[in-house]
Amino acid sequence: MTEPQFKVTPEAVRRYAEMFDIPLTDAEVAELAPQLAGGLAGIAALWQVDVSAVEPSVILPIDRM
């Protein structure tokens, strides 16, 4: 699969926080943006995994392992 190219800017963080009612000061936006960029860069790699025909299970079906 194609890896998504996440673009995390302070302005994008500010707008998302406003949209989803997450209170953030300007200083917190500046601090969070690079942290989030780092985290999302890692997550992008998950899209290299071929998950065709794999269904998610939020609770592990532990008795059927």
Partner: peptide, 16 residues
């Protein structure tokens, strides 16, 4: 800030 899409995909990767 993580979209649900990423959460669900991570669970699919988990199953893999």
């Amino acid at each position: 800030f993580l979209p649900a899409v990423e959460y669900v995909h991570a669970h699919r990767v988990r199953q893999k």
